[in-house]
Design a protein around this nucleic acid. Structure first.
Lengths: 346, 346
DNA sequence: GTGAAAGCGCTAACAC
DNA sequence: GTGTTAGCGCTTTCAC
């Protein structure tokens, strides 16, 4: 069963292919009756124009490349949904590539996407280790705009981020405001840029309160609940005086809650906990988990809008404009796990 | 900055475009030295062949369309990862479309993908309500193969599923084996085919044990933890004698655990709970949650392999073969929430 | 208003 | 071994 082409339509309508093309693209200079006739034939034949043939002639594919990592987890999957929805609203289709080894540079994915003539690229895989070192050499000689998510901003690149540092700050600041002074940190893997940022926020809040952010108060996790559990155990062994913990995601917070209950500590009375992400389950943990919410859907949407802007500009021969660094504000959600400490002396 | 084409390479190497093409496609009949010279030029010019131009001439795009829904949730995101990895291993790139309104038929997405000349389509959006009614009329007249995931099998369609019914059965059977007799069901939304299947499994197990699967023992949730909490409350109000509950996903199980603890019931002593999915957090709930694990990664991979098989067949002019219905077996994980009931009379 | 010719970047089929 | 011709399905340019 062969594809129906513009030829078939032209023949059936008794016009030239150009005229059909004009009707398809809603261009003027087609007699109303001709237009109608062509449209009827299109319907009857169920003709659908080939997007890739179009891409070839127009030099635009209305396609965006997305490179992501860890889509099975909360953050990346929510970001991806935001990306897709905004993209489809703007008339783009997505080409998806998932990275398996986040440590390596994966430049080749970029070229793969270019082979499909994408109009732009969203690099949504997190910055881990030095997996971004390639950007300097590659990006400048690219033919299409690229927007990065979740990576350190850089003078030549367009980047969209949630303000992880602010998130770490408000989480810690909240615990300080509740009267806690000995606040531990269960960090994410510190080769992740975002994890380092959250840690910085924690440090900043402690310093601001005149406290010392000792290394002993920090334990590095892997984002997993198991690592959160181990982390808290380790922390409490070393520093039994710890009264509160900021866990850098909700899974690690859950693991910490498990460990707390194992060690006979009640939350929040003996140990307050704040997480990060606001996974849907967080409100149903026992007790419910205070956490920092980031609007990842909006993160994805913003990135697409920015990319679209760059594409439009480039397409009109405009001077691209300065690369932007966009930062979204996270938001604190207070629940039971960090409720204000009961009155009375320690 | 213009794209480097096969012409540029041909000119620079002093050969015809055809020879360059032969080198690119590793065809024989090129003199070793010519081949080397061409390859050198390719490297020097950093030439990358255009995949879409190739698609046009070859009638193959090495591209698969994926239509999914709810990618921000556990199941669909894990399936997507499986799909992507298997696809990329087989040399395919993915075109991704996410549905917003699962109730509506979304046939147009199918045509959108065809416009991009995809070699095949994976319909990974769940069957909900009658959002599959279009398949009968559309599929037969399609030019490319389609594989469906998570939907009722149908004589003319290729379908890959986890055996949800079996999953419901083994969860319930496990509770029966533990000595529980009054077993409630917190079902998923019953317009979802998969939710109905899990319910069927529950019924089957009860019947087999000579028990009646009364309607009063069933409450319909929305997959959310909140609905699980409400569900259990409702169930216990109506049937205080309930000793165990099968919640059709882990989130609802979590909500039920919350409600149990609110109402002063201990798990598993006063109420046993089994979930479905095995989200990574399940092992860290308090108590840890018994659940049914489905290998969603493998689900996605299997679907891609099947689709690839169909594509290959069609491409060699073979008679497509019978549409297959593939079923994967889920697996019971016993944890604390359904531990064997303490000895002693009821 | 409409059509003919040329071309997007590549490969299949056939020459030589 | 290598080059020429034609064509994938569409749009652009320029005739008429």
């Amino acid at each position: 069963m062969d594809r129906i082409t513009i030829r078939d339509v032209a023949a059936a309508a008794g016009v030239s292919r150009q005229t059909v093309s004009r009707v398809l693209n809603e261009k003027p200079d087609v007699a109303p009756e001709t237009r109608q006739r062509v449209q009827d034939v299109i319907e009857r034949l169920e003709y659908r124009p080939s997007s890739i043939a179009r891409s070839l002639t127009q030099g635009r594919s209305y396609t965006l490349g997305v490179v992501s990592y860890g889509v099975q987890y909360f953050g990346p999957s929510h970001t991806l949904v935001g990306i897709e929805h905004q993209a489809s609203e703007l008339g783009y289709t997505l080409l998806l590539s998932l990275i398996r080894q986040p440590q390596t540079s994966s430049v080749h994915l970029l070229h793969d996407m270019l082979a499909y003539h994408v109009d732009g690229i969203l690099w949504a895989a997190s910055e881990i280790g030095n997996n971004r070192d390639w950007t300097e050499k590659e990006i400048c000689q690219l033919t299409v705009p690229v927007v990065f998510l979740d990576m350190q901003s850089c003078p030549n690149l367009s980047v969209v981020n949630v303000d992880n540092r602010l998130g770490g700050y408000i989480a810690t600041r909240h615990l300080l405001d509740q009267g806690y002074r000995h606040i531990g940190l269960i960090a994410g893997p510190l080769d992740w840029w975002s994890a380092r940022q959250r840690k910085l926020g924690w440090q900043e809040a402690l310093h601001e309160a005149g406290l010392v952010a000792e290394d002993g108060l920090v334990v590095e996790g892997t984002w997993s609940a198991a690592s959160g559990q181990r982390g808290l155990r380790h922390l409490l062994e070393q520093h039994p005086e710890i009264e509160a913990v900021f866990a850098c995601n909700d899974q690690m917070a859950l693991g910490a809650m498990k460990e707390a209950s194992k060690s006979g500590r009640r939350i929040p009375d003996d140990l307050a906990i704040v997480g990060f992400d606001d996974v849907p389950e967080a409100a149903f943990f026992c007790p419910s988990l205070s956490t920092v919410r980031q609007d990842l859907n909006e993160l994805g949407r913003t990135a697409v809008r920015e990319l679209d802007r760059m594409i439009q500009a480039a397409h009109q021969g405009e001077p691209a404009g300065e690369p932007k660094a966009i930062l979204l504000e996270p938001q604190l959600l207070v629940r039971e796990s960090s409720a204000v400490r009961k009155a009375g002396p320690l």
